[in-house]
Amino acid sequence: MFDLFTDYTLRTVALGAGVLGIVSGVLGSFTVLRHQSLLGDAISHAALPGIVLAFLLTGSNEPLPLIVGAGVAGWLGTLLVRAIVRNTRIKNDGALGLVLSVFFGMGLMLLTYSQSRPDASQAGLDKFLFGQAAALLRNDVITIAILGGVAIVVVALFWKEFKLLSFDPEFGTVLGFRMGSIDVLLTTLVVIAIVIGLQTVGVVLMSAMVVAPGAAARQWTDRLSVMVCLSALFGALAGVTGALLSSTGARMPTGPMVVLSASAIVVISLLFAPNRGLVWDWLRSRRTVVQSGPQDQVTGRL
């Protein structure tokens, strides 16, 4: 464990994954509450054609244009989802699934095409699919921290607007807020989180990072502020634990370790959280029946 402080690589990766966990935890709380858990999955898959196109257009293997491409494609994907829901009979989950598969398919197609270009492998386009957390550089962590910091500040600023958006958007419209703009703002922040995550856990696993911490946090509290903070904590925990686990043995890939840690946190929360946890539910039902015997349904008397 002390390696966390002494080992440069572990420190760098843990920091990067940890910040990613915080950001995706905070934003994921809102997507989970809005029943949009598939959103993270959709955006991260939709980002693929953007990455490849950015490479094809710029011919560069620098991470920056690729990340911008990822962000733009992911963002366009969300706009398309909104347009589909608005103008067709297809509902939110259908639209997300549709955009996810079509964009990802286009991305794979472009990826295959790009193989004919000599620099494709150098750019590590394939790596965006599954992440390359262990290869996080100092600059990457700085970028992650800055982008993540901006996202968190925006959430803090627009706290009540996001709460309104998640609980009762129609009421928000009546009050005079432009709920459409707030929706786009929140979604844009999610896109930023996804883009941060692409370099650590990759496209395929990023959806887990957006959903897991939020879903886990919901189990432990009934207050939104606590939920968001817990979610950030869980996300950070998953990131750091994943990095630590990856450092314990050879060939322990970091990205999957992070996601597995996040999943473990979810399972524990689902089972053991007081009030909402399954184990507590079971204990409670046993206790009341066994101790008190049958209850009169009308008078409530035993």
């Binding site: 440069y8 990766v13 599954f130 262990a134 290869a135 990856s246 314990t248 050879a250 890939p253 970091t254």
Partner: peptide, 30 residues
Amino acid sequence: TETGTADLSGLADFIVEREIPAIFVETSVP
């Protein structure tokens, strides 16, 4: 395959220990 932090750290330790002067990039890997 994907690398883990242990692999990277281990290799870094090895390089320092053996005082290896140079490492090499491959044209087909990022």
